[in-house]
Design a protein around this nucleic acid. Structure first.
Lengths: 214, 214
DNA sequence: TAGATTGTTAATCGATTAACAATC
DNA sequence: TAGATTGTTAATCGATTAACAATC
């Protein structure tokens, strides 16, 4: 479908472009340029043009990019031109916070269920959306019933791999892992959000060590 | 202090090594090798040796690495051989979840205060640690009083830059930003934890696009 | 037509990896 | 001594950027 090999850092940058395009649209503009995007994101204009060019010709020479068209195009590329149903495993601090997180809802991600192995939590409903907490035992059944496509792992590190294996068994399409542990999966897309790693990278820099980029 | 130029991805990998070393120690081992670490983290042994070599000679030829010594060394390099005091700005979902988050406490990060501009939240205490919520107006004063070195931004995107400017004015040492917006700072270390970007990178991959690494 | 800005090719830069001498 | 595994140099690979022809 997409022929050329795409550098790994591109997907994260596309998400940044999408965010920036939204900001520009909200400020009332209807056109932008790789130069403007580059200035706002502290990136080279060339890099932005190159990244976009992997997926199509979204601009007009001499004119720049139509913001609405660019937004739509980016949403198509990022797969957020549709809604995604999400199930969160682990109704602890992180799991609960995510289930109420506007940042996800606003982008078309919909948390439809939480799962926990603690019987005292099962049966409750979370947040303003009243998202139900189900037993971990029913996870495959609920994934099917509710058309859950993305699983979020928000359990302690020592349970994360078992949960991941279970999700794969339930034929989940992708996993976002918040547990501070490396997961071994094949054939399922995985993204890690390692909070403590970011803190360590920060203190590394504060305290002397120093790397190139951010 | 550290002479050679260190590639940007190294700091994140160091944090992974640290995590892996802890796991190995907990499993009762007291020695490891770049080969073993590489297998566990799906990285090349050479890369691990090279990364470590930027900071010292932590191994013994023919013998591998003493886990305790490697752990200590990594903690020194990452700056987690000391405790860091953290202040979280924004007592919403994310801010509250972070203030109770074991993953930080366990690594020597201590959340000592939250800040919010909502008067109905100010004066309350959060979680088992009874962390106080202060008014955003008092932030510089409290940062000094409580020796807060790291500020966490957990406010909506449209307030994030103002909060960041304030933190810099209060002479914070570093910032971890959870708001989905690009911040402009100079002279203060910044790490972004962009949750929705990770979800977008995931759906990008699920839905057809594909990049090299994870 | 002149000015602007794209999409793309080629050159550069930087990070990863293979190879190997050092040494436990 | 033979085997293992490090730390480091040199080669490779991949990502970024500069340059520019295409075109609005």
């Amino acid at each position: 479908m997409i022929p050329k090999k795409i550098p790994a850092p591109v997907s994260k940058r596309l998400a940044l472009y999408h965010r920036c395009v939204n900001t520009l649209l909200n400020s009332g503009k209807d056109t932008t340029s790789s130069k403007e995007l580059g200035e706002r994101l502290s990136l080279k204009a060339t890099q932005i043009r190159k990244d976009l060019s992997y997926f199509g010709d979204f601009g007009k020479r001499g004119m720049g990019y139509d913001l609405n068209y660019l937004k739509e195009s980016l949403e198509r590329v990022l797969g957020i031109n549709k809604h995604w149903n999400i199930g969160i495993v682990g109704a602890g601090n992180i799991g609960m916070a995510l289930s109420n997180y506007q940042g996800l809802t606003r982008e078309g991600y919909k948390v439809v269920a939480l799962f926990d192995r603690n019987p005292s939590k099962v049966g409750n409903f979370v947040g303003t959306q009243k998202i139900p907490i189900y037993s971990l035992d029913d996870i495959c059944e609920k994934i099917r019933e509710l058309s859950i496509e993305i699983g979020v792992i928000a359990v302690p590190a020592n349970h994360a791999q078992a949960v991941a294996d279970k999700l794969v068994e339930c034929e989940i399409k992708g996993i976002v892992n918040f547990a501070p542990v490396k997961l071994y999966l094949d054939s399922v897309a995985l993204e890690d959000v390692d909070i403590s790693t970011s803190f360590k990278a920060l203190t590394f820099r504060i305290q002397g060590g120093s790397c190139g980029g951010t």
